[in-house]
Design a protein around this nucleic acid. Structure first.
Lengths: 223, 223
DNA sequence: GCGAACCTGCACAGCACCTGACTGCATGGA
DNA sequence: TCCATGCAGTCAGGTGCTGTGCAGGTTCGC
């Protein structure tokens, strides 16, 4: 709602930084600055309190989309506004593919950027399910804990997501199947067991602190 | 545990209806459909048998929240899961968290909706016995006292739940058997004794202050 | 002290689940 | 076009827990 928002900016051009910072402060927000990709990873990460990110695509040391990837991998799920140079509009698609939520083409009207930032904050989705260190990342179809990460297959991801919706409580077998195989597919009773096993192997690979446990006769749970 | 739940859906988009219905049926539930606000009031009311409601916020003829109000006014107290369009999320301030309800943003993952629905149902169901320090947790098929907890098997849980309905009062042997073995199964008279024993062992494991006592010739009780 | 009700420990069969490997299919690159 | 790769789903075989029943001991009421 109206209150102050913490905006993380990653932009190498001092002038653009200045304009953005001033405008945002005028609008009653706080700003955290990063001059390049390295600083972005350092200052704008998961626990930085940043609620929305503004990333320049054309950074000296990195592509803004890579920065986005890195931040996402580190558990930062704040919505992203990409700034792209006019002659790079075709990159727009890959920007979205990186998990970004909006883009603005340079040169931009500052008012437009402000409006979009606030719009992004408003529609920031409720935190993706993060479970005692286990973070599911839909953008990358992966799960990571700390700095270790494994990519999952789509089916693996749906299954784990279904079980992780409410850590600690048990998801019944039927429910898990219905959730992971949505289109009314009839799968062998045993199939889910295979996938559970695969998930366990992958979770072990990243030293997951949470265990994918079986509750015999009922279903599965995360603990 | 967990049997079938009757889910009422109010959604105008046929595709979304289809996806939800399929997934819910796969999950072992029954579904009652309403295509708009008018049908919702007609089909999903107090005596419809519906145990949980899924309401689209953006209906052609009405706001889903108004539908909710109308249903509530008509004595329908089932918990509600709202579906809201992505660009209308900021509307959620308008207080539908009120009744312990939930919401999901479109486009949604079916798995999330499924699990959330079942979670709502569980929470809404007769909140059992926190009396006497012993707490039964249907979510986890477990019982705990203080910070100590043991998980039970489904049969153990049903039996204990039957006896724990009202601590102090005596539950007849027959009654307990009927509750723990619902589908009229014929079990050896002695089988229940075995389960009582196991429950006693497990309760001792967590230093339960309440005792699972025998009332000779009548049944069992908690004290 | 006697019988019925109940407790206890154990044994066992079935089944839920685990495991590792395999097949078929789609995709993408050489 | 063909091959490599990876994903989805299946299968057969093994393992251990759960549910169940039995046999014998113990307690309670009379």
């Amino acid at each position: 709602m109206g209150g102050m928002t913490v905006v993380g900016i990653c932009e190498d051009d001092p002038d653009v930084r200045r304009v953005l910072t001033d405008a945002l402060k005028m609008g009653g927000h706080r700003v955290v600055i990063a001059r390049n990709g390295r600083e972005a990873v350092e200052n704008l990460g998961r626990d930085s309190g940043v609620e929305v990110l503004v990333l320049d695509i054309g950074l000296p040391d990195a592509d803004g989309r890579d920065v986005c990837h890195a931040l996402r991998a580190a558990g930062q799920h704040a919505p992203v506004l990409f700034l792209t140079a006019f002659d790079a509009v075709h990159d727009r698609v890959s920007g979205f593919h990186a998990g970004g939520d909006d883009y603005v083409v340079k040169p931009f009207a500052i008012s437009e950027v402000l409006v979009r930032i606030e719009s992004l904050v408003r529609r920031a989705r409720p935190q993706p399910e993060s479970t005692s260190g286990l973070v599911l990342n839909p953008d990358r179809v992966s799960v990571h804990v700390g700095d270790r990460e494994v990519t999952l297959t789509p089916t693996e991801f749906r299954l784990l997501a279904a079980i992780a919706v409410e850590p600690g409580s048990i998801v019944r077998r039927r429910t898990a199947v219905a959730a992971a195989w949505p289109d009314g597919a009839i799968v062998n009773e045993n199939t889910i067991d295979s996938y559970i096993r695969r998930l366990r192997v992958k979770l072990a690979l990243i030293d997951s602190p949470v265990e994918l446990a079986t509750v015999r006769g009922v279903g599965f749970t995360l603990r």
